[in-house]
């Protein structure tokens, strides 16, 4: 920079190691990713342009038939995935935000207890929780029995189970903690003096929320909805256990192709398209929320 550019002292061995430290620390993670993500992804990509059967073996032929099938044959299931995944994400936000807000701002000394309650369901297996929703939503389950017989406000032959409502309910329930936790973290770290400043500048409680609290919580809302939407979109367990053939999602199709009809090329193409679709959806979403809001 200045005239004093005398030869720098030769870096010692220790210093050279120190400079390499970030890469050394990254190595295990990178290897893990390489082996368990990049490698299978590459294989899957190759598989998606192959043809053959499990008996005769699969060969890369460069055919795009699997992709055109994936796009044309499963319109309903793609639609269901988008609809159910999207709806449950929105519902999770509507249910989760007030919860996160209350814990962050009004939780006081019960904060940790309340947070524990949010993640408590994780102590039971995903499958068992979903199966228990079969009972909850059953025709003679606690909810409907009460509405049908005690209150008598619902017709006796009314049913929720195996309908889209049941699948969305299950998805919403199962992914709710993924929505609440990031939003809680974002709300929790808001400096309360900013809220006082908004009040000082004539912002009513609502305006303060609208102009300060919520914008500052947006990174959490973004993270939460992605963490909810991605698994909900690709989920097949809820549709399997709480739905009917009509409510099948793309996850069910992929599962069927892999495990039942062993049509690996088709399953691979569907998986890749699902990934691509989610990436695009997230991209559009990030754009809509405004990247500046997310980084600022």
């Amino acid at each position: 920079m200045t005239a004093v550019v005398a030869t720098p002292p030769r870096p010692s061995v220790l210093r050279r190691i120190a400079r390499l430290a970030p890469y050394i620390l990254l190595t295990p993670g990178l290897l893990w990713l390489l082996y368990f993500f990049i490698w299978p992804l590459a294989q899957m990509t190759l598989m998606s342009v192959s043809s053959g059967t499990l008996d005769t073996g699969f060969h890369v032929t460069g055919t795009l038939k699997s992709f055109s099938d994936a796009l044309t044959k499963f319109g309903t299931q793609w639609g269901n995935s988008l609809l159910y995944g999207g709806t449950s994400t929105v519902l999770d936000f509507l249910i989760g935000f007030p919860v996160a807000y209350t814990i962050a701002f009004k939780g006081g000394r019960y904060k940790n207890l309340l947070l524990f309650m949010v993640i408590a369901p994780f102590f039971t297996s995903f499958l068992i929780r979903t199966i228990s929703w079969q009972i909850l939503l059953g025709d003679e389950g606690p909810i409907l029995a009460f509405l049908k017989h005690t209150l008598g406000i619902v017709p006796v032959d009314f049913s929720i189970l195996y309908s889209p409502v049941a699948v969305i309910s299950g998805l919403t329930y199962n992914f709710l903690p993924f929505m609440i936790l990031p939003m809680y973290v974002a709300l929790e770290k808001i400096d309360f003096r900013l809220l006082e400043a908004a009040g000082d500048l004539y912002g009513s409680s609502w305006q303060t929320f609208r102009r300060v609290t919520f914008p500052l919580a947006l990174p959490g809302v973004f993270a939460g909805s992605i963490l909810t939407f991605i698994p909900a979109m690709g989920d097949y367990v809820n549709a399997e256990l709480l739905g009917s053939p009509k409510t099948r999602m793309i996850g069910n199709v992929i599962q069927g192709r892999f495990l039942q009809s062993t049509d690996y090329p088709s399953a691979s193409a569907l998986s890749l398209l699902l990934m691509l679709g989610i990436l695009i959806a997230v991209g559009i979403y990030a754009r809509a929320l405004g990247t500046e809001e997310l980084t600022g």
Partner: peptide
């Protein structure tokens, strides 16, 4: 606070 004709310069500025 929001109904008082008073404004504050906070100790840590509290800029949004």
């Amino acid at each position: 606070a929001y109904q008082r004709n008073v404004n504050t310069v906070f100790q840590n500025y509290a800029l949004f």
